[in-house]
Design a protein around this nucleic acid. Structure first.
Lengths: 211, 211
DNA sequence: AGACGTAAGCGTACAGCATACGCTTACGAT
DNA sequence: ATCGTAAGCGTATGCTGTACGCTTACGTCT
């Protein structure tokens, strides 16, 4: 006679969420490169191999992490009061807010997104709004993927490059790239948030003026 | 008395380009995860440690690789006959063509882009076109970063997810996400090229209708 | 109360990783 | 012919993921 689910010989001392949270803590502290089974085990005070009672391999742990993060994205449709334009901004803003708080996980999202329910829920809501905006068929497909590409790309460019100054600035200021260094000079006054929102606004204007 | 440059006690048997080409071959064959000093050494028939006569560390090898790839991007301004709109399309298309042929290196580009002259050259030309289009100040900064974010994000979404079907399709078709699965169905008929170009077109329309 | 079976958790082992250090060796300059 | 130098290599160290088998806690059944 098989055991009941809650009558295991020894109860697990961890929930998958706790495990994922520990992994996320490691990532936030030491970056994606710092994520190792050993580091996570130490974080929760267990032996390395104990983790394998919870996940089959490192990949499954990564999946747990992105699901933990993405599940905190509010995927409910924003109030219908505002325009579709603003509602997309809200949806994208929510995603950026959550993911931008843990930028190291973006590569994990790209790798595991097809297994993520959270991404699907978010996409579902966004697609619905796009439909309301009058986009359908090809254009809607394109718009959705385009939004995702932008979010994913922008977050990485913002957070995952090494400090912007020493590299670009020095070379740019050598007078070899006049237009660029002029632009770079003005970039100083533009905060990351404004930059992101500005780009998103361009994108949305383009979607609105669909051909 | 120091030696002349070409009179070294033992001539290097490799050019940096050959080294980078070997690393790129490994990446193209086995992915970024397959890139290791050992693998590259084997590829060129040298010992692992011999590589360190050419680069300080793995990071420098990566930089060599992206510079090898990106240096093949034609950064010359496209013919002035066409509109700025079309010229940006050409510039973005060139970048996508080259990088899309080696999609695994995108994370390397993100990490090392600030040290890449090729990226600067490309940006310089793009900025010049944007200026002609009437964009300046804040808008030009935003537009450039936005284009880069899109390219980088789109290439990763296209190439770096695991096969699209089994994951998304199966879940989507469970009727839980009606809008999404409807959209996904139509996505089948849209090729990657069309999708990329479609998104870019939206972006450019938005830039044109600057507020 | 005591015995049993199961799964939790751990220790060890192994292959592969980047790379520090020091040795050998080829070879241009003298 | 000799010498100095840098090319190239071998070994060692401390990381990584994880396969395998042991110990141990504990719910269930007698």
């Amino acid at each position: 006679m098989p055991y009941a689910v809650n009558a295991m010989p020894r109860r697990r001392s961890l929930t998958p969420d706790q495990l994922a949270a520990a992994a996320l803590a490691v990532i936030d502290r030491d970056g994606l490169a710092g994520l190792s089974m050993r580091a996570v085990a130490q974080e929760i005070g267990m032996s390395t191999m104990a983790l394998y009672r919870y996940v089959d391999d490192r990949g499954e742990l990564e999946q747990l992490v992105i699901e933990l993060v993405l599940s905190t994205v509010d995927t409910g449709p924003p109030g219908t009061a505002s325009s579709w334009y603003e509602r997309i901004e809200v949806m994208v803003g929510r995603l950026r807010g959550v993911v931008g708080a843990h930028p190291w996980i973006v590569p994990l999202i790209i790798a595991h997104r097809h297994q993520s329910v959270a991404v699907l829920r978010w996409s579902e809501t966004v697609v619905a709004i796009l439909a309301e905006a009058g986009l359908d068929g090809r254009d809607r497909v394109v718009a959705l993927r385009c939004l995702l590409a932008y979010v994913v790309g922008a977050i990485q460019l913002e957070h995952l490059g090494p400090l912007a100054g020493p590299g670009t600035q020095v070379i740019a200021d050598r007078g070899e790239f006049p237009q660029l260094s002029e632009t770079a000079r003005q970039a100083g006054g533009v905060g990351p948030g404004e930059e992101f929102d500005g780009g998103l606004a361009m994108l949305l204007r383009g979607m609105a003026n669909g051909r």
